[in-house]
């Protein structure tokens, strides 16, 4: 690491602290799953009568063996699927059916979550203004912006996905196995930024990870599906 980037990181940290002070009066929000039931067509219910309340100061880990509906619950919470019964409420109101959703999801396979025919710059600009500090702290390089998704690796793409989600100013982030296919260094780096941003902007988090160590490190609370 060069001295310049160290200096940049330090000043970045300081501004983030200042912003955190400014945001101190940001209101708490509550994401609630009320009596949630869901089953895919022609199969039995995967989720039945599930109740979960997440606040903005929490990072909740969803625990369940594979195939028990963790990802399905993530999609329900982020509004990508509609429940058969029950509801997902953000501050006692249902999630909006159009416009920017304040509950944003980050997917396991970033290469499937990005438009293959759009350059990264365009993809980023779709979700609003991304601050240069955020791009810097996520380690996104300028030359990547003019590339297409297939010209970047999974770890590089996942950084864009995080930048895009954070630019939408969400109150909650749903993270479904976002670092499974990344090496340990990238994993640590991405989570470091994500946790810092979430604490700074008071964003609540629900996440899934198969790694017990990672869960222990990140979660403030666990929830068995």
């Amino acid at each position: 690491m060069t001295l310049d980037t160290v200096a940049a990181n330090v000043s970045d940290l300081e501004t983030s602290r200042l912003k955190a002070d400014l945001n101190a009066d940001l209101k708490e929000a509550v994401l609630e799953a009320r009596d949630l039931s869901f089953g895919y067509l022609n199969s039995k219910k995967i989720i039945s009568d599930l109740n979960l309340i997440v606040r903005t100061n929490e990072r909740v880990a969803l625990l369940a063996p594979s195939g028990r509906g963790k990802s399905t619950l993530c999609k329900l919470l982020a509004g990508y699927l509609l429940p058969n019964k029950g509801s997902v409420l953000l501050d006692d109101k249902p999630l909006p059916q159009s416009g920017v959703c304040l509950v944003q999801m980050v997917w396991q396979h970033p290469e499937q979550a990005l438009d293959p025919r759009m350059r990264m710059r365009q993809t980023l600009s779709e979700s609003g203004v991304v601050s240069p500090e955020l791009i810097e702290s996520l380690g996104i390089r300028q030359k990547w912006l003019s590339r297409y998704p297939h010209e970047l690796s999974g770890g590089e793409l996942q950084r864009f996905c995080l930048a895009r989600v954070l630019a939408a100013s969400p109150r909650f982030i749903i993270a479904d196995e976002i670092s499974t296919m990344l090496d340990a260094l990238t994993q640590a780096q991405i989570w470091q930024v994500l946790i810092r941003e979430c604490e700074k902007r008071r964003i609540g988090m629900v996440f899934v990870s198969h790694s017990a160590m990672l869960t222990k490190r990140i979660a403030t609370r666990t929830f068995k599906v």
Binding site: T2, N9, L185, A188, Q189, W191, K216, I218
Partner: peptide
């Protein structure tokens, strides 16, 4: 650096692009 980045150890990675060069 890999050792320090593991969740069971420090879970630390230097930020920025060229972390280790």
């Amino acid at each position: 650096a890999l050792w320090h980045a593991l969740p069971e150890h420090d879970f630390f990675a230097p930020t920025g692009g060229d972390a280790l060069s």
